Amino acid sequence: MKFIVKTQRGMEGVAANYVKEALPDAKIWISPMGYSGLVIVEAGDEGAGERILEIPEVERIIPVLVEVPAELEAIVSSAEKIASLIGEDETFAVKTKRRGKHGFTSVDVNRELGARIRELTNSDVNLSWPDKVVQVEIIGDRAYVSVLPGEEFRKFTPDKIDARKLFRKVTLVQMPYWGDYKACRSFGEKIGRAAQAFEVKELIIAPKEKMDAFELAEFLKGVRIGQESRHRIQREAYPWKVEKVPVSVWDLYQVVRDKRRPKRLLIITDPKGPTLAEVKADLARDAFYAKEVVIFVGSREGIPRGLFRFADYVVDLAPYMTFATEHGIPAALVSLWEIYEEYARNLEEGD
């Protein structure tokens, strides 16, 4: 049987050597047609696929069901053999990875082959959560067709609660870093990147007192650089539109005094408070029902103690530890998400 083995780019040679050790009689083609991250393995050994998967350098293997010339008509003609593996009550999707120059596109393959399979099986197409995936790997002048179960590792599945439900109502109040200009900009970049990564409702940069304007300017420049660098990655990686997080500057004490927004939940992260485990049940419930969750994060210094009286929760995220400035946002949001998700799942299950 023939397998297409996928690896990290540059690791195909290493993986091929281990495959050769595991399957001495196998025929191996490293980087077919010059495409890195690929190894084609032809082996007659029973259980060859399982033995290949024992190699950590192997990311994925695709057992080849049909091999045909890389021509649209030839690929569509493989539908009859493929259709026998898809039940009428199962959904499917066709996914094509094309390498090289051809007189057709990947979309053409998906459309034509998908239509023919649907005609033969009367099965429904489901592009999001198919029961079976018809995988077409085109490498130069050859096309390899497989039928695989729905992917084992998916980023987005119906059983996962969307974390954006929480983060879209989170306002981060971050005290700015001050001191050396380069340090200000560096910390600003990390904080801007973190806030954008979580796609929060708003990031407020909140000095607690008068500070050097140029130090603040460098910090804000860093926030913008970090935000834009993360936003570029998000636009390429996500299937949905990602907006930039609004960033504003406001006096720390005035943020606490703000009464315009109802149902705010104010959270301060500080070692003087109880641990997350002690308050998680109430905190998760309140975060779930709040219209806005406002989280205060210190920088070099903690949040002023006088503000504790106005907070709904003062939480110690990691007793006997002090987070670095750039770790405050990720630590607070990941911790809050964990207890929020647990509460949301319990509600779904009627607990």
Rank of each mutant, 00 (worst) to 15 (best):
D131S: 10
S84N: 08
T7F: 11
D124T: 09
P32F: 14
V247S: 03
L113N: 02
E348H: 13
L120D: 02
I62S: 01
K291E: 15
S84E: 15
G100P: 07
P158D: 05
A22I: 00
V242S: 04
D180K: 12
A194K: 01
E215F: 01
E73T: 12
K201I: 05
G87L: 08
T275I: 06
E50I: 05
P262M: 09
L166G: 02
L127M: 13
E236Y: 09
V76N: 10
G100A: 10
P274S: 05
D131K: 12
P262W: 10
G100M: 08
S84Y: 00
R257G: 01
V41L: 03
G298V: 06
Q8H: 06
D25G: 11
R285F: 13
R232F: 08
I139K: 04
T275P: 06
E137R: 11
S335I: 09
I295D: 01
N126H: 13
S78N: 02
K221V: 09
Y177R: 10
R309G: 04
M11S: 11
A217I: 02
I30D: 06
E119N: 06
A318L: 14
F156N: 01
E80C: 00
I267C: 03
Q254G: 00
I161V: 13
P32D: 07
M33E: 14
V247Q: 06
V147A: 00
W240E: 07
V58A: 08
L333A: 03
S36K: 15
F3K: 02
E236T: 11
R261L: 03
G273Q: 06
Q135N: 12
R60Q: 11
G87T: 01
G100C: 08
V39Y: 10
D180V: 13
S186Q: 13
E215D: 00
P319L: 09
P24L: 09
V14W: 02
R257E: 10
Y289L: 14
V107S: 07
R118K: 13
D270S: 09
A331H: 07
M321R: 15
E112F: 15
D131N: 15
Q174K: 11
E50H: 11
M211V: 15
A93M: 08
L38C: 00
D286R: 15
